[in-house]
Write a protein that binds this DNA or RNA. Sequence first.
DNA 1: TCCTCCGATTTTGTTAACAATATATCGGCC
DNA 2: GGCCGATATATTGTTAACAAAATCGGAGGA
Lengths: 229, 229
Amino acid sequence: MLTKSEESRGVAAERVALALQEEILAGRLAPGSRLGEVALAERFEVSRGPVRSALNQLADAGIVTIVPNSGARVREMGREDARALYEVRAALEAEAARLAAGQADARSGETLTQLLGQHAQEVSSHPQGAYLQGPGDRDFHIVIARLSGNPLILRYLTRELYPQLSLLRVKHRNVTGRGQAALLEHRRIAEAIACGDGEVAALLMRRHIRASWEALEAQLAAPSEESEA
Amino acid sequence: MLTKSEESRGVAAERVALALQEEILAGRLAPGSRLGEVALAERFEVSRGPVRSALNQLADAGIVTIVPNSGARVREMGREDARALYEVRAALEAEAARLAAGQADARSGETLTQLLGQHAQEVSSHPQGAYLQGPGDRDFHIVIARLSGNPLILRYLTRELYPQLSLLRVKHRNVTGRGQAALLEHRRIAEAIACGDGEVAALLMRRHIRASWEALEAQLAAPSEESEA
DNA sequence: TCCTCCGATTTTGTTAACAATATATCGGCC
DNA sequence: GGCCGATATATTGTTAACAAAATCGGAGGA
C-alpha cells in the first residue's frame, strides 16, 4: 500500500501540492491569498495542468477554497468552521480510541507508553511549552489512529483534519500551551486503551479533544473572525 | 453556499463526474472495470482534461481507484473496506444525532416525525421490502445530518460515505430488507433527538448502524471477496 | 517447455495554444 | 460629483498535440 498513491495523479502535480501545502501551513501564504494558476505555474516551472490538479487536491484537503470561474485562495477558517472541524475530529478520534482498545495487544500498550515517555521529556524541557503544536502531540493521535486498524480514519485525519487544524493555528500562533494537562490526558487515554476498555478510551479522548477546542475557542474570541457566506 | 461549488472546477468536468457516478452506482459499470481516459473522453464528447478532473473527484469520493501511470478503475470494495466504512459511518452519524439533539427545537421533531410517517407508508406498501435502499432511508439520515448544524458531517456523508455504501450494494442486490426493524429504530432515534437527549440519540444511532452492518456482513460472507494488498 | 529480453503499442502525464467567463478600467450620463 | 454601462484586460476552462511510462506480445535462448 503506497502511502502516496491515492489520488495523486502525476509527479509534478504531487510536487506542487506538497510544496504549496507546506507553504500554506507554515504561514508563508496567508489565508485569503489568491493562488493564480499562471503565477504558480511559473514559480514551480510546470504547466498549468499539474497546478490545477494540485489545487484540486488542496481543496479536498480543505486548505484552499475554489470558486469556479474565479480562482483559488488560501482558505479562511471562521469560528464556525473550526467548531465543525473539532466536532468531526472528536467523533473520529473517539472512534479510533475505541477501536484501538478493542484490538489492544501487548505491543500496543508498550508503544504508547514509550511514546508518552518521550513526550514527557519534551514537555519538561519546555516547561510551559508547545507540546501540542509540533509533530509531538500529533504523533500520539496518529499512533492511536494506526492502532485502530481502520485505514479510513487514519486517512481522514492525516489528509484533511490535521492540515485544517494546522491552518487554524496559522492565525493564532503558539496556541494552547496546555502541555502538562494534555500529557496527563494522553496518559489516561493510553491506559484505557492498554486495558482494552474501549468505552472509557473513547470517552476520555472525546473529553481531551473538547478541552483542546475550548482552549482554542478562548483565543478565537478576540480576533476579527467572519466567514463569508 | 452553492451546493456544487466546492471542488468542482469546470462545467464539463462536473457533468462527466455526475454521469459517471450515476452509471457506477447504478451498477452499469461493474467494479474493476477499466476507465480509460480516451474512451471516456469520446463517450462524453469532451477532451481528456475534464475527464481527468472528473476521475480525480470520483477517486476522492472513494468509488474509483487510481493507480499512477496505470489508470483508473471502478473501485472493488472488500470486506475490510466495508467494515472500515461502517465504523466511520457509525462515528459520524452518532455524532450527528448527538448534535441534532443538542439543537432540537420544535420544528426539528416535527420534521422527523412527518418524514417517518411517509416512510411508514412506503414500508407497509412494500411489506418486506426495500426501505433501506432507495433515497427513503437515506433521507432520514441526511435530515439528521442537516439538523446537526455541522456542514462538514453532511458533506462527508453525502459525498463520500453514501456513494461508497451504494457501491457496496451494487454487488449485493436487494440487501437488507429489514425495513420494519429499521423503521422502528428510526422512530426511537427521532424521539431521543426531539427530547434533546444527545447521549441516547448517539447510542441508538450507533446501534442502528451496527445492526445495518451486521445484516450486510451476513450477506458478505458467501461471495468471493478478496481485497488486493 | 519455460524463461528472459527486447520492441511495439497503448495509456497516462505534460505542455502550449485557444475559447469563454469574470473582473477591472474608463468614458458617458444623470 | 456619483452612478451606470461598455470596453479592455486578465484569469479560468477546454482542447489538441507532444513526451514519457507501463503493458503486452513475440523472438530468442536455455
